[in-house]
Amino acid sequence: MAYFYALTVFETGNYMNLFYHFGKYILLLKSLFVKPEKVSIYWRETIRQMNEIGIGSLGIVAIISVFIGAVTTVQTAYQLISPLIARSVIGTIVSDSTILELAPTITCLVLAGKIGSSVASELGSMRITEQIDALEIMGVNTPSYLIGPKIIAAVLIIPCLIIIAAFLGIYGGVLAGSLTGILTPEEFSIGARDSFRTLNLILCMVKAVTFAFIITSVSAYQGYFTDGGSLEVGQSSTRAVVFSCILILFADYLLAELLL
């Protein structure tokens, strides 16, 4: 449903709608920048979110990255079957593509599903049960209290997850290489070190921070402005995931274009 909504926006050129949401989104972001009522509470909330997003996503990130590294190794070897090319090239390709693309982008696409839907449905159900109104009446600045800590937590912790993902991805590649006898860990590491550039790592981190921001802010926007009942909460959460994913891919392209 939400997916089709996204498609119709893009296909039928219902751009006014798009601009409307974009403007509202920017205004929401702007309202985050106010002095917190109580710094200690905001800080505690940020730590809690970091724990939830970071520790909570560690398992799935680990599994995905090991497998993706392994699969990339096996498939690259399959495509590079030629005696003219050194086997260490496989190490180069796997480590470069893991750092540059697979670790940040694939991981964040998965995190968009996990974190995005939970952020949107949490805020959405708070909205429909009037919990956000209750905060508002107390005099709390609800966007900055409810959304600020989530964005800060994600922007701090997702890059850490991505570093772990990159390590595990390369490790998965090494493992698959030696288990299947495609290349030895030594050959792999020669290839990996050969091409290593700091710029790759920087780009990886820039992507991680950008995607983290996209996931939390877009999902928070969807959840915060939920209107209706539990059906709409579900729709907001689907929309959060769909839009986050689309925007991640879009930003991915832009960043590659700009920085490489």
Partner: peptide
């Protein structure tokens, strides 16, 4: 508004407790 709201206590029809 916020200054006034700090002096307001409100009970919602649906309670609106933080669950």
């Amino acid at each position: 508004r916020k200054a006034i709201r700090k002096e307001i206590g409100m009970l919602f029809q649906g309670n609106a407790l933080f669950d």
